[in-house]
């Protein structure tokens, strides 16, 4: 799969604040790529540089093979951008917005636009300023999907929306995934997990990892061990680097395995603890993985690059 988005050593500084510190990123074509990370990690900045709204301080990022600094009208006819922060022309009605945008896009599809308006229950004759936040987001998405973009970039689209609206948006995204690569930054990890095919974890201006969702969720496991007799946690030297957040309580030891493979993980447990009474391995939802990584990054200041 070729990359639709490719960032290389992307850096951005606002005065003394260094937001991006050499970001490397590849978004495969056809993927739904969820970009996650704690507040201030640089997600929105990355997307704005990608769209040529901001200029990078160093490095480069390209979309559809075009350097972000060169992104112009021709490229933008193939990219959709929806952001929670975007200032829409609120004096327009939904109908007017769609009619206004149509001539800008050679691939504009009236049937698709109508379908999206119906699907989202958008009132055509109501001004955007009189729509709820969720409806405005739907209008923005409809106006971005009606021309079958090759790439859709979404910045926190679900923020503050009720579950029904989220479901509508996700539904339409999934339907568009056949023809559109989607890059979406979000804090709504449950939603991201439900439809993203790839995940990138951004922290402190750097991409800590980027991989397929299936691979990510299969390699993260919460492991619980019952040891006999109760023992203190071994020293950090003996602790495998792929185990995070160790906790010990009486005979129970708990940690997160970040590279779970049944045989290898079991061997490691025996190497560290000797004989154990019980090993329990539980899959982790994306939210738990995110929290683990965020705490690990902020807590022990330990490099997560190996993850």
């Amino acid at each position: 799969m070729s990359a639709v988005i490719r960032a290389n050593q992307l850096a951005k500084r606002f005065g003394r604040l260094e937001v991006l510190k050499g970001l490397d990123l590849e978004v495969p074509e056809g993927s739904i790529f969820g970009l996650i990370g704690p507040n201030g990690a640089g997600k929105t900045t990355t997307l704005k540089i990608l769209m040529n709204i901001l200029k990078p301080t160093a490095g480069r990022i390209e979309a559809l093979g075009v350097d972000s600094l060169q992104i112009g009208p021709a490229t933008l006819t193939e990219i959709g951008y929806v952001s929670e922060n975007q200032e829409m022309p609120e004096w327009m009605t939904v109908e007017h917005l769609l009619r206004y945008l149509k001539p800008f896009y050679p691939a504009w599809d009236d049937a698709r636009a109508d379908e999206l308006v119906r699907q989202f229950n958008l009132p055509r004759d109501r001004k955007l300023r009189n729509l709820s936040r969720g409806m405005r987001m739907k209008a923005a998405l409809a106006s971005s999907l009606a021309y079958h973009p090759r790439l859709l970039v979404m910045d926190e689209p679900f923020s503050g929306l009720d579950p029904l609206v989220r479901e509508d948006l996700i539904q339409s995204l999934v339907e568009s995934a056949d023809e559109t690569t989607i890059l979406i930054s979000s804090h709504d990890l449950a939603e991201i997990e439900s439809f993203a095919s790839h995940i990138g974890y951004l922290e402190d201006g750097r991409l800590k990892f980027s991989e397929e969702m299936a691979s990510l969720t299969s390699r993260f496991r919460e492991v619980e061990i019952i040891v006999e007799p109760p023992a203190a946690l071994p020293g950090e030297r003996e602790w495998p680097k792929t185990w995070l957040q160790p906790q010990a309580s009486s005979a129970l030891v708990r940690f997160v395995e970040t590279h779970f493979e049944p045989n290898r993980t079991t061997d490691e447990i025996h190497r560290v603890f000797g004989d154990v009474q019980q090993i329990s391995v539980n899959p982790m939802p994306l939210r738990s993985i995110f929290i683990t990584l965020a705490r690990e990054g902020g807590g022990r200041a330990r490099s997560l690059a190996h993850l």
């Binding site: 704005k48 769209m51 040529n52 709204i53 901001l54 112009g72 009208p73 021709a74 933008l76 006819t77 990219i79 951008y81 952001s83 922060n85 975007q86 200032e87 829409m88 022309p89 945008l101 800008f104 896009y105």
Partner: peptide, 18 residues
């Protein structure tokens, strides 16, 4: 200001305006 130039939140800057 209908298509304001400064800023990073304007609707129009991500649309294919010449």
């Amino acid at each position: 200001h209908a298509e304001a130039i400064p800023g990073d939140k304007q609707f129009w800057v991500t649309r294919p305006y010449h």
